[in-house]
Amino acid sequence: MLIATLAMLALTACEKTPEPEPTGDTLGQNLLVLNEGVWGGNNASLTRIGADGVDPDWFSTVNHRGLGDVAQDLVLHNNHAYITVWGSGSLEAISLPDGHSTRVDLGKRGPRYMAIDGGKLYITCYNPHSVVRVDLATLEVEAECLLGGYNPEGIAAVDGRLYVASDNIADSNGLYRYDNLLYVVDEATFRVVDSIVVGVNPQKVLRVDDQTLVVNYLGQWNTTTYATEGEGSAVVDLATHTVRPTGQALTNMTVAGGTIYGYVRSYESQGPATRYVAIDPQTLDVSTILPGCTVDQPYAIDVSADRQHFYIASDGERIVDGDLYSYRPDGTLEGRSEVGMLPSKVVQY
């Protein structure tokens, strides 16, 4: 038996551990996928998918250094991609299409989400709770606008004003307290001029058109029933500050062609099934989309401008690299490619 076991061990010793390469299915577009990475892993990455194939860590390939610890947001503007890296305190300004990047050190600010307007880049930051303004010509931080006592997250710029979602904050013992406001910041004076009550724990805010925003809110955790309560989404009329709840919870969302697309998912294995929806911001009609989509643990959603390609990124069960899937509007799968750890945003360039 010992000899047999040793023989078996010798055989398995020769067996190579599989190291799967990205599948490289062409998804038909020039895409950038921001992979958030795992906190502590310094493994945030930027995947580039083009006609010439897939580079899962394009940022490192071009710049010979890693993106950093926990990438947060990616926006495109004027042949540049801007990335905030929360853990590393970075703003990376990447020129396209060559990919060379200039790093701006934001120190301990903890940069989160971004919006661009009038040649300025606005970044929500945790420390202090603020929005900072970066001049895109010089990449220097010009000014800081302090917010309330909660952590700011999503930001949208419309008609000279910034709308900032502020979600929650934890006490030193882990007790969460929740905000329910959108802060309105005047770009010219760079001061908070107003606030709009939305739902509890607002996360993302996106511009639908010059008059309309959409905001999702995750609700709060009930410590008695262990259920999340009050999650939802709402459309905000910027002229009147009227808030119209859609009646649909959205874990993540995007806007394309004046329509809101998103999904609602549970982070518990025994939670309800993931659902992909489209919401008409005028009528608030909610319809199910992508009936053939089998990605039940999405982490990102994006829709091409012509609304012919729906990009869904899976979270790799939050322990392995995720995949990017491209679906047609009828829900049939177009292609798939392995990307990086926790793919959180997809953009076309």
Binding site: K108, I169, A170, D171, S172, N173
Partner: peptide, 13 residues
């Protein structure tokens, strides 16, 4: 005492 995202950047358990 530098717990970004926590109230007053402070965490104590």
């Amino acid at each position: 005492s530098a717990a970004t995202g926590m109230r007053n950047n402070y965490m104590e358990n």
